[in-house]
């Protein structure tokens, strides 16, 4: 029997993996992948809560929105990364510190 807790556990794991990727990778694209994991963790939560707590399809609908949003975000982020590469010849987040105060 799979309960809400199982879903939450999986999504927490996903979130943590995503967070780990975002914080530690030395490649901006890999960081982006981490962001995707985080978003999907949140998606899983939406769907799970919708199924077990709310009922109806609201959660699924929000999930769909998040997917669309993630697509848009990926497109823009990749474009930015491309630009950064052309400008600085690197996408290592440790080396892109132009905005240092």
């Amino acid at each position: 029997m799979i309960t809400l807790t199982h879903y939450l556990a999986v999504s927490s794991l996903l979130f943590v993996f995503g967070m780990f990727a975002v914080l530690t990778r030395r490649n901006a694209i890999a960081m982006l992948m981490g962001v995707e994991l985080i978003l999907n963790a949140a998606n899983l939560n939406f769907v799970a809560f919708s199924k077990y707590v709310l009922g109806g399809v609201l959660g699924q609908v929000v999930g769909l929105f998040v997917i669309v949003l993630a697509a848009a975000e990926a497109a823009i982020a990749l474009a930015i990364i491309l630009d950064i590469y052309q400008e600085l010849a690197t996408i290592n987040p440790d080396e892109t510190t132009e905005l240092k105060g």
Binding site: D94, T97, K100
Partner: peptide, 16 residues
């Protein structure tokens, strides 16, 4: 200005 290091992952660490 000490806070603004320019390291993205440093900011993200604060966020998380």
């Amino acid at each position: 200005r000490q806070l603004q290091t320019g390291y993205i992952q440093g900011y993200l660490l604060v966020v998380f």
